[in-house]
Write a protein that binds this DNA or RNA. Sequence first.
DNA 1: CGTCGATACATGCAAACGCATGAAAATCGG
DNA 2: CCGATTTTCATGCGTTTGCATGTATCGACG
Lengths: 166, 166
Amino acid sequence: MASDGNESPIRLAAETWESLFRAQVAVMRRLQAGPAFRKVAINEYDVLFTLSRCPSGWLRLNELNDHVLLSQSSLSRLVERLEKRGLVVRMAAPDDGRGVLLKLTEEGSALQKEIGREHVRDISSLVGPALTAAEQRELQRLTEKLRHSVGARPAKELPGKYLAGK
Amino acid sequence: MASDGNESPIRLAAETWESLFRAQVAVMRRLQAGPAFRKVAINEYDVLFTLSRCPSGWLRLNELNDHVLLSQSSLSRLVERLEKRGLVVRMAAPDDGRGVLLKLTEEGSALQKEIGREHVRDISSLVGPALTAAEQRELQRLTEKLRHSVGARPAKELPGKYLAGK
DNA sequence: CGTCGATACATGCAAACGCATGAAAATCGG
DNA sequence: CCGATTTTCATGCGTTTGCATGTATCGACG
């Protein structure tokens, strides 16, 4: 009820985002309600997951911040809590005295794997029946393209002028 | 870097969601940083927007709750704040003594339109260059399909068994 | 080498959030 | 018609979040 085929590009982009956003909300609602997120909040799991995907095992706090939808200070405290729970360990960055490196502990890794398995099952039971394999691949392609175009780095500061003039 | 073409359907679904989620995070980051959300938080705007799209003008609080990624209590207080700021008005539902109806005030409607315009510009400057019109329409189609399959209603209670067995 | 701005992370504090619960109205079952 | 259950929204309370700021290090430049 909106893709007439010939509408303004601006409207089209807005409706595309609206649709993507609503779909994300709908899926996220179900996932959050699931049993997988009793032990860790979704943001916390996101951190554990990102760490688990990191090849070297160690990840800088600021890099982590690019992946997660959290302010720097909130991430700092979230990590603090994860450390207090024994799920991650902090370490001063060897090459940068300001930096902090993070790594999953054995326990953190185990918990991530455990929740990850549940999480993946939940997801596939939501996404699997909704779209064909080809559609899923296409959706993946399009969202990846969008994400890479938007870029991970939000250009930190520049309040109000990072958008092409006018 | 992951769509080999022949991977397990479970993995495919998980990666599709992962990709969708990351794209949403990346776009949302940029939008939140933009100048459009100085006056109202993103969740607050979402409420104003949803109300503006409501044909009758009036919307029940619980229906609103389906669209927004917030707990019932948080929405209740968010609306309370919006009312205190004169952006919406509450009214007891005529046919249901428990219910509360919401409507934008003149001021709320004006603010929604103002921010909406900015918001739409921001979005189109992010999404527009990223995907062709055809790709945007396809992305819209796929996300709508996903959303409708997932369904708006999370089936409130049933902790742990709303997922088809196994 | 000393100064100055930028970057990385931590922290004080007020605002916002979710969970558990409460009150009031609706609905269901005898 | 009445009591039990459910639904809808509000509220107390502890936790989490973001903004502003503080502290320390890095990098550039004279």
